[in-house]
Structures are given as C-alpha cells and as structure tokens.
Design a protein around this nucleic acid. Structure first.
Length: 552
RNA sequence: CGCGGGGUAGAGCAGUUGGCAGCUCGCCAGGCCCAUAACCUGGAGGCCGUGGGUUCAAAUCCCACCCCCGCAACCA
C-alpha cells in the first residue's frame, strides 16, 4: 500500500462550560489539516470529543439540579452542535461516557495494574470541606477556598498511584531525539528543560471521593482520576478495546485490521480503521503540553504502544491584549463569529489571527479589518469581478480559449511586478511551484504561510486584471480576450482548491460560479485537480451572490 | 542566576544557512471604472528595547542590562 495515513486529534474538551473561541481554534485547525490530508489523498482520521468525568462535573451537575449524565449529555450536545456549525469534519466524536470507552479504559487500567505500573499509595492534599474537593495551591486565594472563604484542611486518602517516575529518562530521550516531536521548537525547549531539571514523581490516578467516574475493575471503591482516563480517548476513539498489547501473533504477518507485522509479532494493536495508530499530529494548547509530554507518553510506554509522532502546541488568544475570561466578560463564542462573518469567515479569521503556534491578540476590530481586507475585498471581490467579466465576454459572443499559463506571463512580462517594488520571478508564480510551496508549508504546519500563499495569488490576479484591462478588450472585440479570461478563471479555479481546507463552502461556491459541480470536483485528488486545463472553455460561467459582504 | 517567550513604521505583526528592513490596516498622491465605495500604481513614515562584542557585513550570532507576558507538575 502506497497511500499514507494521517491521524490527527484535538484534546477532548472538559464539558464544564460551553465551547469558546479557544476550543474552536484547536478544532478548526485540526479540521483544516484533516481536510488537507484528505484532499491530497491520505487515508485520514480526525478525532475530537469531550471529557465528561470528574469531581468538577459532579458538582456542576448538582448545582444545576441534574444528574451528571443528563448534565454532560446536554453540554456534549452543545459541543457537537458548535462543531457542526463550524463545518468540522471529524470522523469520530468520542465521549468518555461512551460504553466502549469505559470498557476499554477499565481493561487498560487493569493491564497497567497487572504489570505493576499502578500500586496502592496515599494522596495528601488540601481538602475543602465545603467543596468536598482537594484544592491546589493556585486555586486558593490567600490560603483560603475562594468559594467558601475557609481554610482547607490537610487530608490524606488511600489511592492508587501511577509510576510516572519510572519513565522520566526514556521520555526525555524520546523528546530530545524528536522521536516524540514537540513543536514549535520553543515548546520543545521548555519541556526538555523541565524534564531535565525536575524529577517526575508518581501521580495519583484514582479517587475514592469522586463517584462520577470509571470504577477500577479490581477495586470498586475507586474511580479513575481524570488524566489517565482522558488520555485513553486517543486510543478508544479508534475503537480500541483496551486489551493492550494483547494482540495475537499475526499469522504470516498479515491481518486485515492493520498493516503487516514484522516477524508475525507486533506490539501494534489491531485498531479499527486499519492501523491508524499512532497519531501523526496531536494538537493542543500550551496549558496541557506538560501532561501530554509526561503522563501521556508514560502511559503509552507502559502499555507498550507506539508514541504519537508529533505534539503540536498552539498559543492562546488574548482578547484586546487581555486574557480571555468570564470575569472580564470578553469571552468570544464561536457562534458570535459565525453570526458576524459566516462559517467560512469565522474559520478563516481563527486560522489567520496569529502565526500558528504562537499566542495571538484578537478582538472585534481586528476581525473586522482582516475580514474586509482578505475576504470581502480580497477573494470575494476577485471572484465577483472575474465572473462578471466572463459573463460580459460571453454576452459579446466571444468564448474562452484554452491556453496554457505561459500565455499569462508572456503578456504580463517575464517579471511580474506588483506591490511596490516587490517583484516575483515568473517561475515562482507558476502553478506547479505555487502548489509545491503550498504543500511544503502545509506539511510543516505553517498555516500562516499557506494563507499568505493564497492571498498572494489573489493579489496577483487582481494586479493582472488591472494591467490587461479585459473590459476594454471586450468592448473592442479583441479576440485575445478568450485567452485572457481563461487564464484568469483557470488560475482562480486552482486557487479555490487551495482555499478548500480552510473554507470548504467558499471553494464550492466558486466552483458553482465557474460552472463546476462540487460533487464531481470532490472526487478529485488535489494533484489531479490543480493540473492546468480543468476548466473547459465552453463551461457556463454564472455570477451568484456575494461571497463575503463587507462588515463595518 | 527557576523555565520559556517577546520588545521591528501611527496600530497589529512577518522576518535565523548573517547580505539593500517587509506585510496588513491607517494616511497622502495618482490610475482604473470589470468588481462588494471595491481594485491597481506610487509616496510619506523605522537608531529593528539599551550598551558592548564577533564579522567585509548583524533585526538575525555572542555577552551584559532594562521592560512586558506566560508557566512553575496530579490545575479536564
């Protein structure tokens, strides 16, 4: 099998609140990558979902006068709806309350226990009687519980511990050698220096006091403490049953469920979906990097499973320079963005708000500016003017003439000059090279560069149109117009493919205006689709509604 | 010396194999009239945080210092 696979995950979101712009950012980014990989023909699996167990949810449910299951059902539905509204194309929405997840998690815990990675110990912490919860130092205000104003008491309880300490050296090595790639580089530095300088201690992985959770199979008084269980979603989301690595020897090195095993024996588990494991990219924000680069790989090592290839950490959004928080009242919900800018507008603004991997400052003013500049005045306007020109040309009884892209450069000089003194060699603007750079940047996850490439193509076409003045040629019945318009529309068609992972609906709207059927187009592979000549000269070009109305 | 990041045009940001400082918005002046009061061209506007060093050459590499932000583990 030559085809590649691509497995991407988002973290599962804790359902103690409705989705916000931060969750949406991670999810849209994952969606863009998943769509891109499907587009280039990779066998792709995109997993997202919700984390639904734990004391906080138990309490929040109680407060809302609901039983926990009802409570999480409602919130999980809100997440699913939000992703639906954002056109997220996940293959599976995993919930940690799913029957399969629970069963698998118990199997996995049992396995870890049997292998001696989990042992009985004690957890000591500061316990607030009012909250019936342990508090971390950070949660306390002046040494007191912010909710009850009382000082928490030191308490101990029996719990099970996971031998995290045993994995420190191996994890450090793996990260240093990029076998577990942590990107961007500054995040790798951070975690490497953390692992070098701080001894990892074993962590508690069960609670007696939390009822809303998954019971340990060998000790029903305990429930699994959240992190360990939550991480397993990346496996159970693929249909894993938790019986790791109890993979029967492959007879003759073959199995219908996964790629051939070496020597008939393999630690690879027969995951559903034909051997998707391990993840190629796991996206997350920086607050959960540390646990993902310690507990998570430790679990996989304990389970004897391959580690993810890459953890990619993106930044936080600041809203007008301030941290987004409920108390400041500056929380932006995905819904707010969609209402103002449309689904594709929202997706685009999230993805272009900041270089991928860095923190970014957002805000309504900035969103408005970017939306008008890039979408309304940029691609939206370009499509409108191109399609209108084509319609006018057809009305004058001229037709398009299929001619290769070199024609465009021959009349626009061999040196394309636009944007001040900035000049770009013709070679760089050739479709083949543009698409190559596009793909290179995508595989490096440089999404901001990918967006730049698209916008440069739009500028190029705008500049070209102004330079050749097709409207005059139409008036003068200049027969060269057929070639000019073909060049414009054909390049536009190819650009629309580049746009597709970010704004699928927009790409489809462009195709329709170009007389192409989205359903037919979607059958194509990217590399086939971007070949010059996809647009047939006789195609009926028809103007439709404005893609991105300006906002104020 | 806890760890990591940042300080570049009025605003927001790009910019490490060191090689004439760039983008978007805003501003000024032209052009165009196909298009969503849009598009194109040109212009003004920067001691690239400060002080040293390496180099023919530094925003970029090294050292010191100043200021800002995030993190400091069982916080889902």
């Amino acid at each position: 099998m030559k085809e590649k696979k691509f497995y991407i995950t988002t973290p599962i979101y804790y359902v103690n609140d409705i989705p916000h712009i931060g969750n949406a950012y991670t999810t849209v980014a994952a969606d863009v990558l998943a769509r891109y990989h499907r587009m280039i023909g990779d066998r792709t699996f995109f997993l997202t979902g919700t984390d639904e167990h734990g004391a906080k949810i138990e309490k929040a449910a109680e407060k809302a006068g609901k039983n926990p299951k009802e409570f999480v059902d409602e919130l999980a539905a809100k997440f699913e709806l939000a992703w639906d509204e954002l056109d997220i194309s996940h293959d599976k929405f995993i919930r940690t309350t799913d029957e399969n997840h629970i069963k698998a998690a118990r199997n996995a815990m049992q396995y870890l226990y049997d292998k001696g990675f989990i042992y009985k110990g004690e957890y000591e912490g500061l316990y607030c009687l009012g909250c019936e919860q342990y508090k971390t130092e950070k949660e306390l205000v002046g040494g007191k519980c912010p909710d009850h104003g009382t000082e928490p008491q030191k308490m101990k309880e029996e719990c099970y511990m996971f031998k995290l300490s045993a994995f420190q050296d191996r994890i450090l090595e793996l990260i240093k050698k990029d076998e577990l790639l942590v990107r961007p580089a500054e995040r790798k530095n951070e975690i490497v220096s953390f692992l070098k300088n701080n001894p990892l201690s074993d962590i508690s992985c069960s609670r007696k006091t939390v009822k809303w959770g998954i019971e340990l199979p060998w000790d029903k008084e305990h429930t699994v403490y959240v992190w360990l269980e939550a991480f397993l979603n990346y496996l159970t989301g693929l249909g894993w049953d938790g019986r790791s690595p109890l993979h029967p020897p492959c007879e003759g090195g073959q199995s219908p469920l996964h790629p051939p095993c070496e020597g008939g024996q393999s630690p690879l588990i027969p995951l559903a979906k034909g051997g998707m494991w391990p993840p190629d990219v796991q996206l997350m924000s920086k607050d959960i990097l540390r646990v993902h680069a310690t507990i998570w790989p430790a679990m996989l090592l304990a389970l004897n499973l391959p580690l993810p290839k890459q953890l990619f950490i993106h930044g936080f959004f600041l809203v007008d320079g301030k941290k987004m928080s409920k108390s400041l009242g500056n929380v932006i919900a995905p819904r707010d963005l969609i209402d103002k800018y449309g689904v594709d507008g929202a997706r685009y603004l999230l993805m272009s708000a900041t270089p991928f991997g860095h923190d970014g400052d957002v805000g309504w003013e900035k969103f408005d500016e970017k939306y008008n500049a890039d979408l309304a005045n940029g691609i939206g306007n370009l499509v409108a003017r191109s399609v209108t020109l084509a319609e006018k040309m057809f009305a004058k009884n001229s037709g398009m003439q299929n001619i290769d892209e070199n024609f465009q450069f021959s009349i626009f000089n061999f040196q394309i000059i636009f944007n001040n003194q900035f000049s770009i060699p013709t070679e760089d603007m050739k479709i083949k090279n543009v698409c190559q750079t596009y793909q290179d940047n995508f595989s490096l996850l440089k999404l901001e560069k990918v967006v730049d490439i698209i916008n440069l193509q739009i500028k190029f076409l705008d500049s070209f149109i102004t330079a050749v003045k097709p409207w005059e040629m139409i008036k003068n019945k200049d027969e060269e117009i057929g070639k000019i318009m073909y060049n414009i529309l054909e390049r536009l068609r190819i650009v629309s493919w580049m746009v597709w992972p970010f704004m699928p609906e927009t790409a489809e709207k462009i195709w329709r205006q170009l007389g192409l059927k989205p359903a037919e187009e979607m059958k194509k592979d990217f590399n086939e689709a971007i070949k010059w000549g996809g647009l047939k000269p006789g195609t009926k070009i028809q103007k439709a509604e404005v893609l991105f109305p300006r906002v104020n």
